[in-house]
């Protein structure tokens, strides 16, 4: 993704109505927008915000699962979990690269994450308290992410869509990995089954919140849909997720912690109880039990790594000088 030249450049465009109209026509014709193409400033800003947030979520998302790598209960599970957490890092990397084509650098984005200016998916501010959480995260959190991500493979911005195709291809094992863990627990000892149920109880509602506020309250939705940055509304995706997941829980003999959950024949989907949006906003705004720890862990890795990054650059400079001297 080749727009290093753009970094730091002023991305302002002449946003005359004719320009916006012509741009919208390209979008409507399902043309992909590429980094060097003229685009409305709002489109660029929205993408930077969204891709950055997505990348940060992958990176912060390494922490709750990473919390169990050293305690995975079998060598097979240890290897699979390690590979999965590594994949999340890779996905963050692809996404940062996609955002970098828009004239923002990875370091800038990292600093925004660390300063709290940039957000990441709130689900990762919940702690992983048992091995079952590793299964549940794969099953529910990756399951919810896939619902969100598959439509993004058709996003109007080329680099984002391409990154997402790679991400989705790699993620296909994540949800299965998680479901298999939960299934093994659900069929295991009474303690293991209790562990699985407790985990579902804790992660169910936060997973539903991952899709974001109800459509009526979502401030960015309309324009994003028009620009084809987003293709389905929050509520549509949430409904799809519930309809897909409830039978999977039933198959395991686990109960979904929602007393109001009922099948609605007429709409061909489940009705669910009210989501606690106060909790959602509390956690988004930093009030979750892990918010502070997550950012501190990222800050520590960033600070502790500074001398390494600096040394690599210093060495590269010496190599260049030696090569020049030898020529």
């Amino acid at each position: 993704m080749y727009s290093q030249g753009l970094i730091g450049a002023d991305g302002r465009t002449d946003e005359a109505p004719e320009f916006l109209e012509a741009f919208q026509k390209r979008i409507d014709a399902e043309e992909k927008i590429e980094p060097m193409d003229a685009m409305p400033e709002g489109y660029r800003r929205t993408l930077i915000r969204q891709i950055g947030q997505h990348a940060h979520s992958e990176i912060v998302g390494m922490l709750p699962e990473g919390n169990w790598i050293t305690r995975a209960p079998s060598l097979k599970r240890k290897a699979a979990l390690l590979a999965k957490v590594q994949d999340e890092g890779g996905h963050g990397l692809y996404l940062y690269a996609a955002a970098e084509t828009l004239g923002v650098s990875r370091d800038q984005m990292t600093e925004e994450l660390l300063s709290g200016k940039a957000k990441y998916s709130s689900i990762f501010n919940y702690p992983t308290l048992s091995w079952a959480d590793i299964g549940t995260i794969g099953w529910l959190v990756d399951g919810a992410a896939i619902m969100n991500q598959i439509p993004l493979c058709r996003c109007s911005f080329g680099p984002y869509a391409r990154a997402m195709i790679r991400v989705c291809k790699e993620e296909s094992f994540h949800q299965r990995q998680g479901y298999e863990i939960v299934m093994t627990l659900a069929r295991g000892t009474p303690e293991q089954k209790a562990m699985a149920q407790d985990s579902l109880n804790r992660w169910w509602w936060p997973s539903l919140m991952m899709f974001g506020p109800h459509d009526a309250e979502s401030q960015h939705s309309d324009q994003n849909m028009k620009w084809k940055i987003k293709r389905f509304s929050n509520d549509e995706l949430r409904q799809k997720f519930i309809d897909a997941t409830v039978p999977q829980a039933q198959f395991l003999g686990l109960s979904v912690p929602d007393p109001d959950l009922t099948w609605n024949e007429e709409k061909g989907g489940y009705d669910h109880g009210p989501i606690d949006w106060d909790e959602f906003w509390r956690v988004v705004k930093g009030g979750g039990v892990m918010n502070r720890d997550r950012i501190e862990a990222r800050q520590k890795a960033w600070d502790d790594g500074a001398w390494v990054r600096e040394a690599a650059l210093a060495h590269a400079e010496k190599r260049r000088a030696r090569k020049l001297a030898a020529e």
């Binding site: 390494m62 050293t70 390690l82 957490v85 890092g89 940062y96 862990a297 502790d304 390494v308």
Partner: peptide, 15 residues
Amino acid sequence: VSEWCGHAPMLEEDL
């Protein structure tokens, strides 16, 4: 080595 996962000096090393 696995203890480093998620805490490396740069993302490339996290992979």
